[in-house]
Design a protein around this nucleic acid. Sequence first.
RNA 1: CGGGAUGUAGCGCAGCUUGGUAGCGCACCUCGUUCGGGACGAGGGGGUCGUGGGUUCAAAUCCCGCCAUCCCGACCA
Length: 586
Amino acid sequence: MVTRMSQLFLRTLREDPADAEVPSHRLLLRAGYIRRTAPGIYTWLPLGKKILENVASIVREEMDRIGSQEVLFPALIPREIYEASGRWADYGDTLFRLHDRKDADYLLAPTHEELFTLLVKGEYSSYKDFPLSLYQIQTKYRDEARPRAGLLRCREFVMKDSYSFDLDDAGLQASYDAHRVAYQRIFERLGLDYRIAFAVSGAMGGSASEEFLAPAEQGEDTFVQCTSCDYTANTEAVEIAVPPKQDPSGHPEQRVLDTPDTPTIDSLVTKLNSMQELVDENGRPFVGADTLKNVVLKTRRPGSATWDLLVIGVPGDRDVDLKRLAGQLEPVGVAQADAADLAAEPRLVKGYIGPQLLAEIGVRYLVDPTVVPGSAWITGANETDKHAAFVTRGRDFEPAGEIGAVEIRDGDRCARCGSALEIARGIEIGHIFQLGRKFADTFDLDAQGPDGESIRITMGSYGVGVSRAVSAIAEQTLDSSGLCWPASVAPYDVHLVPVGKGDEQLNAAAALATELEAAGHRVLLDDRNATAGEKFADADLLGMPTIVVVGKALADGEVEVKDRRSGERRNVALDAVVGELAALPR
RNA sequence: CGGGAUGUAGCGCAGCUUGGUAGCGCACCUCGUUCGGGACGAGGGGGUCGUGGGUUCAAAUCCCGCCAUCCCGACCA
C-alpha cells in the first residue's frame, strides 16, 4: 500500500523542541519519528518504528547468517536469577526493581547473561550439542543516572544481545571471529562509518574485547586512532609508544637536593633550573618530563570494606587518568586518596613523595610504562623540601608492575608504528567480548565429554545497540535541512511530492506511486493540501533517499528526481521514472 | 551525587521587577483568496500558569517547602 501523508500519523514541528540539544535528537523529534514519554524513555511513531524495524531486520539477517538462533526472553525477571550471579547487589541503582502482589522482588533486565546460561544448562548436556550461539532482539532497562541525547543514552532501549557457547578456547575464538565479521556486515549495511577499537573487558570479566564505535561529535566514548596505521583503541585500553629501555648503571649516583618550597612540578622545575651545576651535569635545562610524579590512590576489592594505598608513578608533565586506571583495575575499585588516607601513613610526605621508600613501608607501587626500566628521574626524597636526582628504576627502586595510567594526549605516539595518535569521540554501537567461564562457573554450565568427563563451557557475549544505532545513523547522516537516511534503513525509498493547484499533479503522482510500488519501491505520497514550500521542507526534513516532485514539468511529461543526500536534481520523463529508480540501492 | 538553568495551550515563548478576570507565534478547526522552497485575510476551539502551604480583599506574579525537567560534571555491559 502506498502511504498517503494525509493519513499518516505524523506531525512535524517547525521549531526545535527546547530540551533537545543533540542534532539527531532534535531532528528525530521535529520530523515526528519519536516522542519523549519520560526521561530516557521514548515512544516510536510510525516513521520511527519503521526505521527501528529495518535496523533490527538487518541485524537479524546477519545473526542468522552466522548460524545464531533467535530466542526471546522476558524483560521482567525474578530476583533469584540475579541473586545467583551476585548482580542483584552489584548493579546498584542502575537496576529497575519492583515487587509483585505477593511482595516478591523482580527486576527489569538490563542484560541477560544469567538467563541465556541457565537456558542452555537446562536444555543441553552433551559435547555433541556444542558449539551453540543464541541471540535476541529485546528491550532492556537501565535506570541511568543521567539519560541524555534522545536515543543515545536511554533508560529503555532495544538491544540485540547474543551469546556463544563453546567447549574450548579455540571454539570461543572462532565464535568471536564469526561475530566480528557479522558486525562488520551489519554496520556496513546500516551505512555507518565505524571503527573497531580495542577495549577493556570491564565489569563483565573475560579477556579479549573490542568495541564498534561510530565516530560522532556527540558520542560519549573517547577513543584513540593512529593517523597512519589502523590501530584504534578505547582510551581505557590504549597503549602508547614508550622510550627505549636504558642501562641503570649509566646514570650518576642518586643524590638528595635541597629544594625548599617546591611541592608542585612547576615550582620544582623552576628551582632545578636555578641550580646551575646540576643543569650542567644534566646537559640541558630540566623540564616537567624529567620529574617523576607519584600520585597516591587507594584501591578496594569488591565486597571489602577497607581501602589499600596505591602509588602510581608518572612523568611529571602528565596527569593520571583515573577513568583509564579504573577500567584496567576493575572489578577492584579505585579512588583518589584523601587527606585522611594520607594522614594514616605519615611516611608519605605530600608533595615530596619518592618511590625509594615505598617497598620498604609496604605501599604498592606501579608505574606507567613510559617510566621505562633503567630511566633516571628527579623525584621526591620523602622529606619536606627535599628532592632526589638521578633516581633510577632498576637500581634505586623497583615498581611492583606497570599499568597504563597517564592521560592520553593528541599527538602521543602509536605503539605499533610510532606515528601520531589522535583522540576522537564516538558512539558505541556494538561490543564483542570473550566472556570466558565466568557465568558458566556461576551456574555450573558443563557438557559431558566423549570420555564421560565434564567440560566447563566457555562463553562469548556480544551486543548491538539497535535503538542507539538509529540515532547514530541519524547523527552521521543528517544535514542542515533534516534527516538523510541510507536506503537500507529509510522508512520509504521514494517520497512523492505533487505540487500544483489542480488535481492534475496529484492524480499523476498517485498513478506513479502505484507503479513504483508495483516495481518494488516503498512509497510515501504527500497528498496533503499544503503549499509547495511546506511539502519541500517536510520532504527534506523526513529524509527519504529519493524525492520525486510532480509539478510544473508535468506539462512536458516530466518529473523532477532529487537525491536527498547530494541535493542533485534532474528532470526525468514520466514514463521513464520507474526504470530510472530501479537502479537505486535499496 | 555535585554545579547551573527552567517549569504558563500540542510545540516555541512573553507576562512576574511594580499583585487586579491569561497573552503572542507555530500547530489545530471554519470560510475565502493563494499554489515551486515552511502564503494571506477573517472568524474560532484549546490553559487546575509544576505542586503543597503561606501573605493578601485579590497571587502566574510576593514568601516558604516539595516535585519535575534540561544542560555540565561524577557515574555508566
